[in-house]
Nucleic acid binder design. Structure first.
Ligand SMILES: [Zn+2]
Ligand SMILES: [Zn+2]
Ligand SMILES: [Zn+2]
Ligand SMILES: [Zn+2]
Lengths: 134, 134
DNA sequence: ACTCCGGTTGAGAATCATTGTCATGAGGAA
DNA sequence: TTCCTCATGACAATGATTCTCAACCGGAGT
């Protein structure tokens, strides 16, 4: 059987940040927040922790327009995201018809092992009003 | 006004490759193909050409699971893609309901400047049958 | 509490797609 | 043809992510 991961200070710290954060954030942002809070964790470890959590489906991961990977602790089950480009604030959304549509399209064209990516990006109301402040 | 881009051998060569290719390909793959055909073009130039073409919406761009950017000469108009992970073969697909759904979701949540990404990845029938050859 | 083992950490190096630099080259208008 | 520019390309630089590996520490057993 598989070994359970050890309960280390670093892993707990990363999970705690994800708990607190509302939106998606990059590994480096999480690393910075940890430094600010004085619970410093090595950058490599942050990356590793997020990888493991993502593989275990404990967190969701997506790429922003710049190709950076962002992470977020989401609710369970398949869903997609409406993400603010500026602050990362996120709304989880479901599109039952899209799921079926994607699978049907793939099926009709003889594709196997199908997966799909679907994200909506925009600027949230908060960031829209804060646009031109000193 | 904007200057028209110059009609150089290199730009023509890149466009010619995109014309011939059926599926999505990375800048480096296109660079390799050019080298094979003896119409060598600098890697920087390949990247620049593809960038310009993408900004002008002459080609579509997307990221594969590894985060690499792939390019393809598509038909005009907004559409999405069913892409083979193995060979890049691509089927253009349209999802009118998805478009409306995405915009409505964003609107309902007060998001502006909305864009969305939607791609379907799988293994095409050809690559499925070629799986275990010597 | 003490020991020991194997998973975990982290500073730094390595990877690698992509972008920047800048001297040289070549469109194309006159 | 001349000449002004933009375009090119060899090479360096960037930057997110991954790798390395010696030191570290969680936790099971005693
Ligand atoms: Zn999610
Ligand atoms: Zn925002
Ligand atoms: Zn397309
Ligand atoms: Zn669309």
């Amino acid at each position: 059987m598989v070994e359970a991961p050890r309960n280390t200070r670093q892993r707990r710290a990363v999970v705690a940040i994800l708990d607190d954060l509302d939106g998606f954030a990059s590994a480096q942002e999480i690393h910075d927040i940890l430094k600010q809070r004085g619970e410093s964790v090595g950058l490599s470890t942050v990356y590793r922790s997020l990888q493991v959590l993502a593989e275990a489906a404990e967190v969701d991961a997506l790429r922003n327009a710049d190709g950076e990977v962002l992470y977020r602790q989401c609710s369970a089950g398949h869903h997609h995201h409406l993400v603010c480009r500026a602050c990362g604030r996120t709304v989880e959304v479901e599109g039952p018809t899209v799921e079926r549509w994607a699978d049907r399209i793939a099926e009709e064209n003889g594709f196997r092992d199908v997966a799909h990516t679907l994200e909506i990006f925009g600027t949230c109301d908060r960031c829209t009003s804060n646009r031109d402040l000193p």
